[in-house]
């Protein structure tokens, strides 16, 4: 703990990087998984391709993906893109299924009623299907966010910032306090992000607790 207060500027700096490297992929991945999840909820073919693909992607070790990414997209090894792209892929792999399941779980009589009222498809998706899918989607988003926050540290192995740097440096200089500081940072960040999403979910879906 004392390490954190004595090195507050440094700690804050890696916290910022860590936050950026984990939140940006969650946001991009989340946005991309909505249309993909919608596709999977609508078409059996899309499901048959997307779900196994998501599973395979998820089993690739993150370090491998981070090392391979620059080779595949041709950027410098130290660029933050090299963490953002793989983590975005992980987020999509996690979220596609949540979004698809959530959309499929919208009761048929509700969507039928929406059609019968005269909703056009896009409006129905934005104002009926998607809001009803939110509770399950946000649950998936919480898992993806927490797992991203823990995975960002791997980026340090290829020299990128974040709490991972505290781990590698602490290990090399035999300074457990530094490692411990990174650990605390990761846990606190994960708990805060998770709590924030939980609250956000409750605010956005007051109806989900109605009638219980």
């Amino acid at each position: 703990m004392t390490w954190i207060f004595e090195n507050w500027d440094r700690f804050w700096e890696v916290t910022e990087v860590h936050l950026r490297l984990s939140v940006v992929p969650v946001l991009i991945g989340f946005l991309l998984s909505i249309p993909l999840g919608w596709l999977a909820s609508r078409s059996a073919t899309a499901r048959a391709i997307l779900f196994p693909l998501a599973n395979i992607l998820f089993t690739i070790p993150s370090i491998a993906l981070i090392v391979i990414t620059p080779v595949l997209i041709g950027v410098k090894i130290l660029d933050e893109i090299n963490v953002i792209v793989p983590l975005t892929i992980y987020t999509i792999a996690l979220m596609v299924r949540s979004v698809a399941d959530a959309l499929s779980a919208v009761p048929g009589h509700v969507t039928a009623a929406a059609n019968a009222m005269g909703f056009r498809p896009l409006r129905r998706f934005l104002t009926v299907d998607f809001p009803l899918a939110l509770p399950v989607t946000i649950a998936g988003l919480r898992v993806a966010t927490v797992s991203n926050i823990s995975m960002v540290s791997v980026g340090a192995l290829v020299g990128l910032g974040g709490y991972g740097q505290l781990f590698t440096e602490g290990y090399q200089t035999d300074n457990p306090a530094k490692v411990f500081a990174g650990l605390i940072g990761t846990v606190v960040l994960a708990v805060l992000a998770d709590g924030l999403l939980l609250v956000l979910g409750r605010v956005l879906t007051p109806w989900a607790r109605a009638g219980r």
């Binding site: 009761p107 009589h109 509700v110 039928a112 009623a113 929406a114 059609n115 019968a116 009222m117 005269g118 909703f119 056009r120 009926v128 809001p131 009803l132 879906t205 109806w207 989900a208």
Partner: peptide, 22 residues
């Protein structure tokens, strides 16, 4: 066109089909 047609025709179904989130 179906959405226009449907706005002029009321429709009630068995489970009411109400929107749970509204």
């Amino acid at each position: 066109d179906p959405p226009t047609l449907r706005r002029g025709i009321g429709y009630v179904i068995q489970q009411a089909g109400l929107f749970p989130h509204r």
